[in-house]
Amino acid sequence: MISKPLHLDQAIASELTRDDEAKIARFTEYLAELRPVLSSFLVTQTGGDSNAAGDCLQEVALVLWKKHDVSWAFEDFRRYAFRCAGIEARAYRRKCHRLGKRIVYLAPDVIESLGNETLELAAMDPLPSRRRLDALRICLDGLDPLQRELLDARYEKEGVGKTVIDIAKERSCKIESLYKRLERIRTSLQGCILKRLKELQT
């Protein structure tokens, strides 16, 4: 709550104030930078379920928006974000347990160590996350159309376009073999990203 003197004839701003704009700019900048690692962390905490991780991320962003202050440095924002993410993920697991929803549970110590590993991985990475995304975009452009179609089917928004099952029917092949192909595509993308980043370094 803010309280300040105001003369009645003072116009009440109908546009965003500079403070508002600064707050939004800071928030979006920090969140965009954190999003990949925050998502990765949430994936480890939600049994590998990207959709659940996305829902948790939504809640984390809500709390961050409410609580963050323009005076926060990125490190403050990051620390707070991961604390929220941990809480949200625990709430999600409790809810799944309550509803009897099956999730792939790894033991708590493994979940914790895997979560820490994702954080370490991000901490070791001096590059802004957008650089990796840029490299990934270039690598995706290098895929052949069939590979791209399969990847789109797996990662595009649900309910839009073909699914992996649709492609299996279309190509008269087993779903299992498509997932194997996906595995190979991911492996090649990992290699490709590293190669692109090395090129950037040189």
Partner: peptide, 28 residues
């Protein structure tokens, strides 16, 4: 994952790629 730090690192990297692919398909 419990016994092998290399496996943990690999898994974390794979998860990062997975999240990045999601990020591109479903922008913020």
């Amino acid at each position: 994952l419990r016994d092998d730090p290399q496996a943990r690192r690999y898994c974390a990297e794979r998860i990062r790629l997975h999240s990045e692919l999601h990020s591109l398909a479903r922008p913020l």
